[in-house]
Measured scan of single mutants.
Amino acid sequence: HNGKLCKLKGIAPLQLGKCNITGWLLGNPECDSLLPARSWSYIVETPNSENGACYPGDLIDYEELREQLSSVSSLERFEIFPKESSWPNHTFNGVTVSCSHRGKSSFYRNLLWLTKKGDSYPKLTNSYVNNKGKEVLVLWGVHHPSSSDEQQSLYSNGNAYVSVASSNYNRRFTPEIAARPKVRDQHGRMNYYWTLLEPGDTIIFEATGNLIAPWYAFALSRGFESGIITSNASMHECNTKCQTPQGAINSNLPFQNIHPVTIGECPKYVRSTKLRMVTGLRNIPSIQYRGLFGAIAGFIEGGWTGMIDGWYGYHHQNEQGSGYAADQKSTQNAINGITNKVNSVIEKMNTQFTAVGKEFNNLEKRMENLNKKVDDGFLDIWTYNAELLVLLENERTLDFHDLNVKNLYEKVKSQLKNNAKEIGNGCFEFYHKCDNECMESVRNGTYDYPKYSEESKLNREKIDGVKLESMGVYQILAIYSTVASSLVLLVSLGAISFWMCSNGSLQCRICI
């Protein structure tokens, strides 16, 4: 991952900044910058967002509201009850120091605090018919004063009620008058409520006091790749198909172990950190130390980045220098085999997901714990399936590479015959000098055995068991695999060879 928040398929997220979902939807004055928000790819909250409900109280069923919003990608904020005409018999300019803005008392931008007009609070009834052709999110509140005197001074009615009804919602609220500790300079409380109004449905408000009335509502448009994440990451000019709280993932790998919460087309989250597919040879310690064997393909974004291909070729060293050249036929066979294998694994496992966190309130801790156990169970199954699949494929890959290298080895052996000696570690020792032209003939299969047989015969008789390297004779190393990324691999195959001279070296080696 890149540690950044990015656009998702070209669409920017909605960053709530210092506000949370509650503050944004109710219209906390400190969240005025969010009022123009219309569309987004996903919503970003920060872990310690401080601006929620400015007048103390709870947004009821907040967790369910977050779940609903996680599939919303755009909205239209509109005046559901026009301020100047909807409440002619009531005062609608209630403000509070708890919702101060720029040093002055204020109130929510989407709600109206209705109080008595003169000395009376006549029963009010108002309704709205949803003609938007889509779901409408309606929010309101109920004020709970701290004393009967406060109730009387604001609403005149000691036994007030609030009723809200639609086809799918029907509740009646009565204020709970009680002494409470002071929070944000208030002994009173406000509880906030919401409902989704279906197209064509009607919502009716009736009250004799204590109503925090809707002013603006939201017509919602769903987008199934949307979601809500909690993150401290910063926004950058970048684009992605998959976003996590820790950063964007741009990967076609089937798995990731970065974060379980994802938005967009994302690899499946697994616990494993070692889900690797081999593309090189079986481990040979001396070669492995030099980083030549054991190439791997990573299938977990965050564990290993991208696929690494092994390729086969020849390396030689003689009086004229040293050089490398790919054996294109065996390399292409290996590439085709690995590509098919990788595609097979991805096809089997690479279903892209959006995974969002589930919200539970403080009273639902047991449910949250149960949900976590269920999620953990599914996660263990996914991890096991992934590891088992790759384990089985790896064994076949190792066998496949062994065969490829063996074929190259036999190709060289059949040409050199007794003009060189096998020394048991995949290397041959020449009994004759071999210049670049000679080396090329070994690589392309045109090695002239009779041409060098007499010199080889004489050297075999002279050496008589002495280690060949100390006599200045020449080696050919018969097994060799270097490691390159897919891009470098293609470039390498396009070149005939490249040279690395070893000044004054008397050794001649050709490596497979």
Results as ranks from 00 to 15, higher is better:
Ser414Phe: 00
Glu455Arg: 03
Arg509Leu: 09
Phe353Thr: 08
Pro260Asp: 00
Ile308Pro: 00
Lys467Val: 11
Leu458Trp: 06
Asn318Ser: 04
Ala386Pro: 02
Val483Leu: 13
Gly323Cys: 08
Phe360Trp: 15
Leu275Asp: 07
Pro260Tyr: 11
Glu461Val: 01
Met349Trp: 09
Asn394Glu: 07
Met439Leu: 10
Gln246Ser: 13
Thr244Asn: 10
Asn371Leu: 05
Asn340Trp: 03
Phe428Ile: 03
Gly303Ser: 08
Leu391Asp: 07
Glu265Arg: 13
Met349Val: 14
Val405Leu: 15
Leu281Met: 12
Trp311Asp: 04
His315Phe: 14
Gln415Asn: 13
Leu468Asp: 01
Asn371His: 09
Arg460Phe: 10
Ile249Lys: 14
Ser453Arg: 09
Glu422Arg: 05
Glu410Met: 08
Glu395Gln: 09
Ser231Glu: 00
Val270Cys: 01
Pro245Leu: 02
Leu468Phe: 04
Ile381Leu: 15
Thr354Asn: 15
Asp464Val: 08
Pro450Ile: 14
Ile346Phe: 05
Phe498Tyr: 15
Ser505Trp: 04
Leu370Ser: 03
Val342Phe: 03
Asp327Val: 04
Gly280Met: 08
Lys358Ser: 14
Asn333Lys: 13
Cys438His: 06
Ser414Arg: 14
Ala326Cys: 09
Glu429Phe: 05
Thr273Lys: 12
Lys467Ser: 12
Pro260Glu: 02
Glu469Ile: 00
Ile258Lys: 02
Met471Lys: 03
Leu506Trp: 09
Gln507Val: 15
Tyr449His: 12
Met500Val: 03
Glu437Met: 10
Ser453Lys: 04
Ile249Ser: 03
Pro254His: 02
Gly306Lys: 09
Pro285Asn: 09
Tyr447Gln: 12
Asn407Asp: 08
Gly494Val: 04
Ser481Phe: 07
Asn333Arg: 14
Met367His: 06
Cys438Ile: 09
Val442Arg: 13
Met277Lys: 05
Asn425Cys: 07
Ser505Asn: 12
Tyr314Arg: 01
Cys434Lys: 02
Leu281Thr: 09
Glu454Lys: 07
Leu416Met: 09
Asn343Lys: 09
Lys341Met: 15
Gly323Met: 13
Ser470Val: 11
Gln352Glu: 03
